[in-house]
Design a protein around this nucleic acid. Structure first.
Lengths: 351, 351
DNA sequence: CGACGCTGAGACAACGTTGACTGGCCGAGA
DNA sequence: TCTCGGCCAGTCAACGTTGTCTCAGCGTCG
């Protein structure tokens, strides 16, 4: 600590166009022109302005720019997901980010944790920051609070779950058909008692998957048995518990259909703890990392997250580009990935 | 399509304070006071303003506000990670988001994909949007380009990797010690030939982990063998390849230390493909989902991602609150999780 | 030689909001 | 009765930028 210590401390505020203009000896408007790439500026002046800007460490203020600018665009979009940390949300965020980047936009993310109040709060927070558009994986079941925002010109696309009480675009996976495919697959392996373990039935995707389950059974003329059904909520512990419960019934299921990620993993854990992983068939909805490396590998209905995210983002930008056509819902197909657990036959063992 | 079709179409722009003021019959400044919770406004007027605002669907414009406001804060922070989709980045993002939310801030995320050019671009893009601060998991090895930003008052905290050519706060895991712990653990199980498979050595965390590996061997008086070392880069395929390579040596290793997530998973796949998962010991750096459910479970050196993220975010906000103390690096300890694979003894089998 | 168009730069106002200040009203104390 | 101070709402300018307009200078053509 020498006493001559007085480093170029704290201008504490960023240089502005005014300062750049002063240093370059031009009008502030000319600096603006240079940074907006207006071609009618003398190259010599451009160089002088650039030099002055570099010397001062000037960076344009996009918030001021977007305020003044005609379109008021902020080159920022908002993304609300269930939980930024979970693989589904993370993958979705990334694909949206990729599309946004191509368009020069950044992404503000928020996690909702399935809380409708938080959905509202965060949607408002994003709108208060004047994002150009919103990509929402909704938590609530009433989106009428967004009607006025929509009317005010904020574009929005729903993902994974459709909007309620609001007319807006959506991109969803074919949940019902995916569930039908899963159950059909188990039926084909000879199973007649197939348990359903899934997220709370109030969540629309869970409801659709459950609907698919019931439909597939119905088509196969198998009576619906309430005992084989548990809407556990999205938690491993609850799923483990529910799995143990159904398997200890007097007439236990020979196959499981788990309709959500964490539920699937819980069921996997429970089956292994009971030593039944090679004798009880199992198909899960949603792929998860390392599902292929387990033994048996876990057969799943995989969503095409990349396509869902990409489609949604592109839809949003099309709206931002002025597309005024009627709101639509795009359904993206799922696909069955056979890895072993879903191919265990009824009555027999199979690896 | 009836012809009377002319819905309340496209005001196309959001209502402003001016319009609210006009409708409520007050001055614009009074509306401002109401929305800022200034207590010296007549309750009757507050009610009138709120009502007018609701009727118009008014939402304050935070970008305009932050422009005018003294501190210029945008209540937004920027977060640059390696890839928003990978579990490490996702978990980190979430913990930062949690701290930010407590402070009323939102988080802008960007993925760098280990590309230094992208790091610069995105950092600039965030600064152009006048984020209050930056949390960076850097991709590049020269952060001098941030010096002027720092001097202009933008706070920044580095995470996972320390800044180079820049004096800034950082929060990192104890990579070297973690690696030492991993190798010591394998040594204790009797191993003398321990392979190292890791990310490119130019990545500082990988270098630190490799350093720990060498150090632990040296302390144990085991000669370093170049044949047992592969800096593969972060890819499963490359790791599978490298694993096969070391295991087909004339004098193959009896244990593996893999110093990165994807490398660990690649090694797991390779060991299983070779049927060696129960005879070759294996400790990986970084925990990963379902590591416990494999057989054997994969022993890992786990980073405390939550603590790293939380510490970094808190550090950032402390700076934003005016902390001017010297930049520091906080090191967060790692911990060994024994799950089976790391406890396989040399020469023997073990589950 | 003067009107004309073109090029390149500056002046001014405005985007939506808030900080600093002003001004009207009312009750209390001189 | 008059002033003073507190209370509350309003006026004005400014944050950093850009759209619109203006204007000086210059070359061109009738």
């Amino acid at each position: 600590m020498t006493q001559g210590e007085a480093p170029p401390r704290t201008p504490r505020s960023r240089p502005t166009m005014r300062e750049v203009a002063a240093l370059a000896g031009v009008a502030i408007k000319t600096v603006s022109r240079v940074f907006n790439g207006v071609p009618t500026v003398d190259p010599a002046i451009v160089a002088r302005v650039r030099e002055a800007a570099d010397k001062l460490g000037y960076r344009p203020n996009l918030t001021a720019s977007s305020l003044r600018r005609g379109d008021g665009r902020t080159a920022t979009i908002g993304m609300l997901v269930e939980d930024a940390a979970n693989p589904f949300s993370a993958a979705l965020t990334r694909t949206v980010e990729n599309v946004a980047r191509e368009r020069g936009s950044l992404v503000l993310v928020g996690s909702l944790d399935e809380d409708p109040a938080r959905e509202r709060e965060l949607a408002q927070a994003l709108i208060d920051r004047r994002v150009d558009g919103l990509v929402i994986v909704p938590a609530g079941r009433d989106h009428s609070y967004l009607i006025s925002e929509q009317r005010s010109g904020t574009c929005m696309v729903f993902v994974d779950r459709e909007p309620s009480l609001l007319d807006a675009d959506a991109v969803v996976s074919d949940n019902r058909q995916g569930a039908v495919t899963a159950v059909d697959h188990l039926l084909k392996a000879g199973h007649r008692r197939i348990a359903y373990l899934g997220d709370r039935a109030t969540i629309s995707t869970a409801a659709q998957r459950f609907d698919g389950y019931r439909h597939a059974l119905e088509v196969a003329h198998i009576a619906y048995d309430d005992e084989l059904v548990h809407h556990t909520g999205a938690s491993e512990e609850a799923a483990i518990d529910a799995t143990r419960r159904v398997l200890s019934l007097p007439d236990p299921p020979t196959a499981l259909f788990t309709s959500q990620n964490l539920v699937t993993i819980g069921a996997v854990r429970a089956l292994r703890a009971l030593g039944l992983q090679h004798s009880v068939a199992h198909v899960g909805f949603d792929d998860f990392p390392l599902a292929d490396i387990l033994s048996p590998g876990i057969s799943v209905i995989a969503q095409n997250i990349e396509q869902v995210g990409k489609t949604a983002a592109e839809m949003l930008f099309r709206r931002l580009d002025g597309d005024e056509s009627a709101a639509t819902t795009i359904t993206v197909p799922t696909r069955l990935i056979e890895r072993g657990s879903g191919e265990i036959r009824a009555g027999g063992h199979h690896d």
